[in-house]
Each structure stands twice: as C-alpha cells, then as structure tokens.
Simulated assay, not measured.
Amino acid sequence: MMYGIGYGGGFGGVMMFGLFLLLVLVIIAVYFIIHHFTSTNAKDGSRSIDNAFAILNERYARGEIDEEEYNRKKAELRKL
C-alpha cells in the first residue's frame, strides 16, 4: 500500500525538484561561461587593435619608424 505519499515513499517529488533545480543551475552556469568567453574575447580583440594603433602612432611620432613602414604596418593592422 502507498498510503497516499506517492511514488518512492514520498521522496519522488523532492528528487524531481532537486533534479530540476540542478538542471536550471547547469543551464545558468553554461550561459555565464559562454557569455564570459565571448564578451571577453570581443572586448580584448578590439582593445588590442586600438592599443596597437596607438603604439604605432607613438612610434611614428617619435621618429622610430618612417612613413613607409608606418603605412605598411597600419595596412596590416586594418586587415585584422
């Protein structure tokens, strides 16, 4: 006889809720992991290109590189 406590001696509902909660937590964790890596890469990529242009401009302004090398490196950075 079950005495009205349900499948699994009363623990069925608790186990189902626990599994549901675990599934929700896994989905949230996967979302944050994917979001972290995609947004970090996008921000770092654009920041590193901007930083490279700034360094190139500084080197040209100090006279470390000539105009030909400046234009060549600038064109290479734009390809990225």
Rank of each mutant, 00 (worst) to 15 (best):
76 E>D: 05
6 G>D: 07
43 K>A: 13
20 F>V: 03
2 M>I: 08
40 T>K: 15
74 K>A: 07
22 L>N: 06
57 N>V: 03
58 E>W: 02
20 F>I: 00
77 L>G: 02
6 G>S: 05
54 A>R: 09
72 R>P: 00
34 I>W: 12
19 L>C: 05
10 G>W: 04
60 Y>S: 06
66 D>N: 15
3 Y>S: 06
17 F>N: 13
29 A>L: 14
64 E>A: 13
51 N>E: 09
77 L>T: 00
59 R>A: 11
75 A>V: 01
77 L>V: 01
32 F>W: 12
2 M>L: 11
15 M>G: 00
17 F>Q: 11
7 Y>M: 09
13 G>N: 04
35 H>L: 12
67 E>K: 15
58 E>L: 10
79 K>C: 00
4 G>S: 10
61 A>H: 14
26 V>F: 13
1 M>E: 11
56 L>D: 02
56 L>V: 00
73 K>S: 08
42 A>H: 12
50 D>Y: 04
54 A>D: 11
73 K>N: 08
68 E>T: 14
47 R>G: 01
70 Y>E: 07
55 I>F: 07
73 K>I: 15
7 Y>W: 08
46 S>T: 09
49 I>E: 09
15 M>F: 10
47 R>P: 00
65 I>L: 11
5 I>W: 08
53 F>C: 01
45 G>W: 02
71 N>A: 12
44 D>M: 15
34 I>S: 08
33 I>N: 15
45 G>I: 03
46 S>K: 14
66 D>A: 04
68 E>V: 13
23 L>G: 06
31 Y>N: 10
48 S>T: 08
47 R>M: 07
40 T>I: 07
70 Y>N: 06
15 M>D: 07
39 S>Y: 12
52 A>Y: 05
9 G>N: 13
34 I>K: 10
24 V>S: 01
30 V>I: 15
1 M>I: 09
14 V>N: 03
22 L>D: 05
45 G>C: 01
71 N>Q: 14
7 Y>K: 12
73 K>R: 13
32 F>G: 00
27 I>R: 07
23 L>V: 05
4 G>P: 04
56 L>R: 03
49 I>D: 04
15 M>R: 09
4 G>H: 09
65 I>M: 05
3 Y>D: 10
78 R>N: 08
19 L>I: 03
27 I>Q: 04
45 G>T: 07
72 R>K: 14
62 R>G: 05
7 Y>N: 12
58 E>T: 09
75 A>N: 12
1 M>W: 07
41 N>W: 08
33 I>Y: 15
73 K>C: 02
33 I>S: 14
6 G>L: 06
19 L>S: 08
22 L>H: 02
42 A>G: 02
23 L>I: 06
62 R>Y: 05
10 G>K: 01
75 A>S: 14
46 S>V: 11
78 R>S: 06
56 L>K: 01
72 R>Q: 12
11 F>C: 01
27 I>E: 10
44 D>Q: 12
50 D>A: 13
37 F>Q: 15
27 I>A: 15
5 I>C: 03
24 V>R: 01
11 F>I: 04
27 I>M: 14
36 H>W: 15
79 K>Q: 05
36 H>V: 05
31 Y>A: 10
55 I>T: 13
76 E>H: 05
18 G>F: 02
46 S>Q: 13
60 Y>Q: 13
60 Y>C: 02
3 Y>A: 10
33 I>H: 12
32 F>Q: 09
2 M>P: 02
36 H>D: 14
77 L>S: 00
37 F>C: 00
68 E>F: 10
18 G>V: 06
